[in-house]
Nucleic acid binder design. Sequence first.
DNA 1: CAGTATCCACAAGGATACTG
DNA 2: CAGTATCCTTGTGGATACTG
Lengths: 118, 118
Amino acid sequence: MSDAPSEDCLAGWCADDDWCAITCTADVVGRKWHPVVVARLLDDGPMGFATLAESIAEVSNTVLSDSLEDLEDSGVVDRRIVSERPLRVEYALTPRGESLEPVIDAMAAWGRSEHAPG
Amino acid sequence: MSDAPSEDCLAGWCADDDWCAITCTADVVGRKWHPVVVARLLDDGPMGFATLAESIAEVSNTVLSDSLEDLEDSGVVDRRIVSERPLRVEYALTPRGESLEPVIDAMAAWGRSEHAPG
DNA sequence: CAGTATCCACAAGGATACTG
DNA sequence: CAGTATCCTTGTGGATACTG
């Protein structure tokens, strides 16, 4: 799900290209659990690894960990250590991550409309 | 990018689950070129394979063909043969595909805002 | 608790060549 | 023109076990 755009996105090489803008976004929320993680953080605010894992449930810790790292690299999620012993980490959205709200909302709305009564 | 939700999405098993609604959408537009194809069709209306391929450029015909088949299966794109000799096919969005506009717009807007001046 | 280390299986992107 | 057939490589999700 990434080659040309992905990294260069951040460098701004494709500002005027429409499909490029789209793939840039897809690179950030185009993996299976990425948009779900962002949605959870958007809804319930900052939370720890375990809480996040429980609220999503189907995702394994390996994958969740990988996704979070990915989102951190994208500048969407902020990871911060709250305490060392016991280890406690908190994940929160960065402003950039919060700006994804319209995208996540649109995705949720469309997915919901698929099985809406009317 | 799909296991549980993907197919069941259409069956409506997860209507009340928020993250599920999101993954349902991700299953449809979460692959590299899917949202771009939908965007092109949304912008310029129905078009043939070659036109689509040119307007996206970076995608190989193998992948584009695969993506279109995928979108057709998702009920987002309608494929119709216009002429047999020479073979001419036209791809258009279904109503379901058109309803993706808010999602695509949000994605394009976010991607664009990444390198916007202000 | 919050991961990392491994390993696996399969999906997906892509290149090249060929066909109805 | 609009693909299909092959083959290849990497990405990605996932399970299990182990660690600071």
